[in-house]
Amino acid sequence: MVSQALECDKIYCPSGQVVTRHIADETILIPISGNLANMERLFTLNDSGASIWRLMDGKRSVQEILQDLIQEFDVAEDRLAGDMAEFIDQLRDLDLIAEHPV
């Protein structure tokens, strides 16, 4: 298994092509096209994924998010860093997040 490197200094924010809805303890991401929701495909996040998503506000760096999550969840930093790198790659591949210029 290849361990992915976490790019700690990068800052991400939701792309302009997705809106977030919190419904009944679920975090749902809805792709939009123009001004309309694309209802053919939605995305849901689990608890830790939703926490990362909430912290991706275009202000916090990946490193800052990592530190916040270590305070929130019972997890070792190394494991969280690897999981976060993979999760961020998934979000980027799905065009759900964009890198925020520093």
């Binding site: 939605l42 608890d47 830790s48 969840f73 019972d74 759900l96």
Partner: peptide
């Protein structure tokens, strides 16, 4: 859907699952 003795939530690997201005 959430703590251990340290007051932290139990951890699960973050996941995005593809399947509502």
């Amino acid at each position: 859907s959430n703590t251990n003795k340290k007051g932290k939530k139990s951890y699960q690997k973050p996941e995005v699952k593809a399947i509502v201005v």
